[in-house]
């Protein structure tokens, strides 16, 4: 390629493999020249992939698929290279948890929600990180498991994950579903309590995937292979408990020093070596189409995509033929 490969990420702890690969010189070792673009919001990542601002990104599958389908202006041959992280999202609600409240599915959870809503004193405003996010799907599933409709019973707000803590503490939202470390950070700051997370709602779900756009594919035939190799090495570093302190410190470093300016304590607490159910999971393994099954069916259920779109996604390499049928 004529320019360094531009990879977009957000200020999230599960961007770790990309940050670590850069800081440890793993991209260079595999002959890649990479620029990391720490982007202000998911819309910027999606638009960057469509309009030649980015060649690649670490992104959640629903937005990547919607972008590939041309819902941000024009179809792009956006393809998954590899799943990088699994789970790690948390649903947090404002305030101290009422002692003895039960948030399990069914009647108990429903009652807890009603009581909490009465404490809040308004239609709860819940934030997710993008309209086409895994977080919205997870939140929808959780609310529906306790008999609450995401359409009628709450007001959804959209904001980038790194703005959520401020919004919760300013009172402009009453809860959220977001990626690491923001749920843990909210709980640590006493702004809210965790009611559920990826592990409880969709155990082991694919969270971030590395995508590459068509242009990048065409310009460098073995790009996928070298990128995969660098990521594989980075993930090995990320999952080694001996590195957890150091990697949390790298992520907490300021942007100008190669970090993501994340809160250190919360980030350290959800590193892969932690025993929390929603600790981050990084895995280096080949692309598993089936893992997207629930997302695709929820996306259809919400009317985001049609059966024809599912066929297009199969053609672009996101799904298998069986899934598109």
């Amino acid at each position: 390629m004529s320019h360094p490969l531009r990879i977009g990420v957000l200020r999230l702890a599960d961007s770790a493999p990309i940050v670590v690969a850069r800081n440890a010189g793993l991209f260079e070792r595999h002959g890649l020249s990479v620029d990391i673009a720490v982007s202000p919001s998911w819309a910027n990542i999606a638009d960057g992939l469509v309009w030649n601002g980015l060649d690649s990104a670490l992104i959640f599958p629903p937005l990547a698929m919607m972008t590939a389908l041309g819902r941000r202006g024009r179809k792009t041959g956006l393809r998954p290279v590899q799943a990088v992280s699994f789970g790690g999202n948390m649903i947090v609600l404002r305030g101290p948890a009422r002692p003895g409240h039960d948030w399990t599915a069914g009647r108990a959870g429903h009652r807890s929600f009603r009581n909490w809503k009465a404490d809040i004193g308004r239609t709860p405003r819940l934030a997710v990180v993008h309209a086409y996010s895994t977080h919205l799907l997870i939140l929808t599933r959780f609310l529906s498991s306790i008999g609450i409709s995401v359409q009628d019973d709450v007001q959804l707000k959209i904001m980038p994950p790194d703005r959520i803590i401020d919004a919760l503490s300013a009172g402009s939202i009453d809860g959220f579903c977001a990626g690491p470390p923001w749920g843990e950070d909210a709980a640590r700051q006493g702004l809210g309590f965790v009611v559920a997370g990826s592990a409880a709602i969709c155990p082991g779900h694919v969270e971030k995937v590395l995508v590459l756009n068509d242009q990048a594919h065409i310009e460098a035939a073995d790009l996928s292979r070298t990128l995969l190799a660098a990521l594989h090495d980075a993930i090995a570093l990320c999952v080694d408990p001996a590195n957890a302190d150091d990697i949390a410190r790298q992520l907490a470093a300021p942007l100008a020093k190669g970090g993501l300016a994340l809160p250190f304590a919360a980030t350290r607490a959800i590193m892969p070596d932690a025993s929390l159910p929603d600790a981050m999971v990084f895995k280096s393994r080949s692309w598993d189409h089936e893992a997207l099954g629930w997302m695709v069916s929820d996306m259809q259920g919400l009317g985001w995509i049609s059966p024809e779109d599912v066929v297009s996604l199969e053609r672009l390499g996101w799904l298998t033929q069986e899934m598109a049928r």
Binding site: P40, S41, W42, A43, N44, D47, V129, H130, A131, Y132, Q151, L156, K157, I158, M159, P160, D162, R163, W304
Partner: peptide, 16 residues
Amino acid sequence: MSRADRDALDSVRALS
């Protein structure tokens, strides 16, 4: 584009 609340505008059609 660097305004973080641009995503909110972005989602008007997708959300009620």
